[in-house]
Design a protein around this nucleic acid. Structure first.
Lengths: 196, 196
DNA sequence: TACCTTTGTAAGTAATTACTTACATACAAT
DNA sequence: ATTGTATGTAAGTAATTACTTACAAAGGTA
């Protein structure tokens, strides 16, 4: 097979991992299947990643940087809180529906491996989202837009249920989730909770 | 090892499966580890279940019967809808915190195997809960207690986020979830959405 | 040109997997 | 007591796993 730089190969490998997870399930993610999917030899994979586990870790790091990074920009922007919340929610829904392999990876990896480092990364992704939502809500309360007596922590937890149960729906339905205006309808519900 | 009836052994095996999943992760659920955990020979396991997969399926059937059965009784009772919703939510929270192995099993199995029959069972568990919540809400609307203009399907989805994100918290924190009055606080939020 | 590093591969490795086989014994029914 | 069935085990099985080794060639640099 033609030579390519490690950074290119790493991207190809990570993409193939997500591809396999989505089409065949995590169970079928073997280095042998991975090599076949890319069309390279199995040994070659280990030129670009020291272990199979390191591929997974690298993917999770990507999620931190790309997805959480994007949400952080929205949450910290100077837009009105209501608008921030809307962009935040829709960005989440879009990311999850566009990256179904990642969805399945995050979900199963936590309970599959019981690896401490991995769990901690996943916990960070989960908690970062919760914190960013809390920030938006607190900003809205500070501006006098929303009810200051609501338990912010609990609303954030309820909010997190939206992406997470969307995740489950996506996995169980094989990726065919098509609720019209899903994110705007969900936003209305959350706004009703926040209303004074 | 002393002889016991198949039905007793099946229970022991299923309990050991949940035990291993919770303490060591699904990855370490091999028939070899399973036999060690129970203290019986590996071959003996196959006296009581035809395949390893059948053990998982049997556990999921238990969830259908025990957990969903319990929820169905609550949802169909003649109590006022508000009270039904409260019992329903608290029963769910209690079941999940008391059965952490099951929690992890349900979560990872869907994305791990990509097995159609298994996915369909899990989908049923998820959808049954959603439908029962919807029934309670519709009853409340019919009685004139709650706002008839709310999108019931979306509220049910939002509701489902509660058990599901609780699940994630449990998995990632290693089972140490201790939010005071979690279910009553969450109930307040849902009731605010339902309010006229 | 000569040389060195990077990227590629085929053919290994030992360990683990789910499951089977052959045989032994416990126990209930006759 | 005899017999048949259910339950137990030790020692297999072939397949698969993640990863290694030994070697070849590509391509940049001197």
């Amino acid at each position: 097979m033609a030579r390519k730089n490690t950074d290119i190969r790493q991207e190809e490998i990570k993409q193939a991992v997500l591809d396999i997870i989505f089409t065949d399930g995590l169970k079928n993610l073997s280095t042998s299947n991975l090599a076949k999917r890319i069309g390279m030899s199995e040994g070659s994979i280990f030129r670009h990643f020291p272990t199979k586990q390191d591929i997974i870790i690298s993917i999770i790091e990507d999620v931190q940087n790309d997805f959480i990074g994007q949400l952080r920009i929205i949450a910290n922007s100077s837009l009105p809180p209501t608008e921030r919340l809307q962009k935040f929610l829709c960005a989440t829904v879009n990311y999850l529906t566009d990256n179904k392999g990642i969805t399945m990876l995050l979900f199963s990896e936590a309970s599959h491996n019981n690896d401490a480092a991995l769990k901690s990364s996943l916990q960070q992704i989960f908690n970062n989202q919760k914190q960013l939502v809390s920030k938006i809500i607190l900003d809205g309360i500070a501006l006098g837009i929303w009810d200051e007596s609501i338990p912010v922590e609990n609303v954030a937890m309820l909010y997190m249920g939206i992406p997470v149960s969307l995740n489950i729906d996506l996995i169980l339905s094989g990726g065919e989730f098509h609720a019209d205006n899903f994110c705007s309808k969900m936003l209305q519900l959350i706004l009703k909770i926040l209303k004074k």
